[in-house]
Amino acid sequence: MRQISYADAGMEALIEEMGRDATTFHLSTDAPPPLVERFGESRVRGTPIAEGALTGMAIGAAGSGFRPIIDWRMVTFSFVAMDQVVNQASKIHYMFGGQARFPILYRCTVGGGVRMAAQHSQSPYSMFMNLAGLKMILPSTPRDTKGLLKSAIRDDNPVISFESTRLLTLVGEVPEEEYTIPLGVAEVKREGSDVTIIALAWLVHEALAAAEILEAEGISAEVIDPRTLVPMDTDTLRASVRKTGRLIIADEAGPTCSAAAEISALVTEDPATFRALRASVRRVCALQVPIPYSPTLEDHVFPDRNKIAAAAREVMAES
C-alpha cells in the first residue's frame, strides 16, 4: 500500500470531501494552496487573524445549509474563540430544540515535543470534552486521520479534530480507494493478556514500543487507541480491561480532569469491569505543569515508552 504523511492524509481528506460536497468551504488564517488551487478563493479563504469570528461564522453558515471547515491551526488559538465554542457551538442545536443542524469541522494541532514552549504545546481536549454537544477526534496514524476527518466533515454536528503536532510528519499506509472511519470506534492496536494500555495520539506509538519492551520481559500488553474522544467507545475499553484485569492510560495532557481521568472513570464505574480489576488504575500523563521549552525540561515533563513500561511493571507487581 502507498505511504503518505499524517499531514498529507488530512489534506487529502479535505480535498476529497470538498470535491464531493459543494456546500463545504474552508476558512483559516492563510489559505492552504492545495485547496485554493482546486476550489478557488471563494470557497477557500485566507482570513484575518480573528479566530473568534471564524468560529462563530461557521455556526451561522452551518445553520444556513453549509458545511464549514475551520482550521484554527494550533489549539492555542481556539482559546480566543472560546465564547463561540462554549456558549454557542456546543449548545446551539440543543438550546434551539434541535430545529437546525450545525455540521462544522474545527481542526487544530495539539501536543508538545517540538520545543515550542507553554502556549504552543497544549493538549486541552478534556476542556472540550467537558462540554456537551461537541464531537471530537484524535487520530494517531495517517490512515485514521484521513478516515476520521472524512467522517467528521460528513457529520451533522460540530466536530473538533485534534491532530498531534508530533505526528504530522509520520508516514504510514493510507488506502488509495475511498474509505471512512466511523466516529466512536476504538481500535485494538495490539492484543495482549496481562495489561491494557489505552493510549492517545502520539502515546499510541509509545505504548506500542512499550509493549515490545514488556514482551521481552514476559508481560503481554494490549494497546488500544480510542481514536474518538466523543463519543467514546467505552465498550471496547471495558472489554479489554475485563480480559487483562489491569489498566494504564497514557496521554500527553496533564492528569487533572483529563481524558485519562475520564477513561479511568468510565472503565471502573462498570461493576463487571471493576470486579475484574487486579491492580490499581494508573495514568501515565504529563506532569501537571505548563510545558517548558528546554529539551531536558520538556522531555522530563512528558510521558514516554519507558514511563509506560515502568507503570506496567508496577501494576504487574501488585497482583
Partner: peptide, 9 residues
C-alpha cells in the same frame, strides 16, 4: 459573528 457567517453563506 454567527450572523456574519450567514452573510458569508
Amino acid at each position: 459573528s454567527i450572523i456574519t457567517g450567514a452573510g458569508l453563506a
